[in-house]
């Protein structure tokens, strides 16, 4: 790595930071201030921040039947999707490495789910899983011998959304972990083989230590992506059946920008959601940093 000298650091002019600071101000600082202010005032779409109302908005948010559940669903969704995608993606990357060669045609195919806009992903899977006419539902139905409708039941709908999300986001794991696997020195693998190590032993002793930091980074990335989920829910289930797939982002949206346009309550929900996401990501991020230090 080309060393950046202290003199060079001093020479970087401050105004170069201005464009990214504007982005941070518009997307992080201003929204945070606004959300806090709107949480404690009466706010409508026509006139924001009218008068101080204390904790009325927060109370209303926490008393909303759907909201507490939506927070739990968001965390469950993000954690399960991140874990499944990371495990599956790492497995596929290992398969690719075992096959030998580069990405090839499969790499090209795997790019497609990744670049498909989530709305289109939702449309495709909603059609695949339509109770009448969905090819996947009719295939599952003939396999299990009774009519299947995974999106129509409140016990399976959220899990189905998780799998759709996993379909879209596993390829990123494959891509990044495979690139890291190319960094495992062949000499080590050959030495391990000569020493009579089996596939599992080679993986735990040689491969894993090299790719572990990448796998953890990818897990973190997938967690962040999962916590943002909105599009799939909006397109595929609109939160139903019942409230079974209402995630936090969707709850904020439908409270503040649909229905009664209850902006104050939506702002209070946003505040709670922001705090939870902040705590979760900061916690995981700290764990990751500790793991990285332990490696070094």
């Amino acid at each position: 790595m080309s060393g950046t000298t202290a003199a060079a650091v001093r020479r970087v002019p401050r105004w170069l930071s201005l464009p990214p600071l504007v982005a941070i101000a518009v997307l992080l600082v201003y929204p945070t201030v606004f959300v806090v202010a709107a949480s404690f005032t009466r706010t409508t779409l026509a006139r924001p921040l009218q008068e101080w109302t204390g904790f009325a908005n927060l109370t209303s948010a926490l008393q909303t039947e759907a909201f507490a559940g939506s927070l739990v669903r968001t965390v469950v969704f993000a954690v399960s999707a991140a874990v499944i995608a990371t495990v599956l993606g790492t497995a596929v990357a290992l398969l690719l490495r075992a096959r030998g060669g580069g990405f090839g045609v499969l790499g090209t195919l795997l790019l497609l789910p990744l670049v498909t806009p989530p709305v289109m992903v939702g449309v495709a899977w909603k059609l695949l899983l339509a109770p009448a006419g969905g090819a996947l539902t009719s295939t599952i139905s003939s396999l299990v011998g009774s009519p299947a409708n995974p999106l129509g039941s409140s016990t399976t709908a959220l899990g189905t959304l998780v799998l759709i999300h996993v379909w879209q986001w596993t390829p990123l794991v494959v891509l990044l972990v495979f690139a890291a696997l190319l960094g495992v020195p062949d000499e080590l693998l050959e030495a391990a083989a000569l020493d009579g190590a089996g596939a599992l032993r080679t993986f735990t002793a040689v491969t894993w230590p090299v790719v572990a930091p990448t796998v953890l980074s990818v897990l973190f990335l997938e967690l962040v992506v999962g916590l943002k989920v909105f599009d799939l829910v909006a397109v595929v289930t609109s939160g139903g059946p019942g409230l079974s797939t209402v995630v936090a982002s969707f709850e904020v949206f439908r409270t503040g920008l649909r229905g009664d346009y209850d902006v104050g309550t939506a702002a209070a929900m946003t505040l709670v959601l922001g705090l939870i996401v902040g705590v979760v990501t900061a916690g995981v991020s700290a764990l990751r940093a500790r793991a990285a230090r332990a490696e070094a």
Binding site: T4, S17, P20, L27, V35, V252, L257
Partner: peptide, 28 residues
């Protein structure tokens, strides 16, 4: 290139990325 200053900017940008977009929807 900007050492500690750069690292701080990177951390702020990462925080901006981690925040769910719905947080910014009403203010924006």
């Amino acid at each position: 290139r900007a050492g500690k200053r750069g690292a701080r900017l990177g951390a702020a940008l990462l925080a901006g990325y981690c925040a769910p977009p719905v947080v910014a929807v009403l203010p924006l």
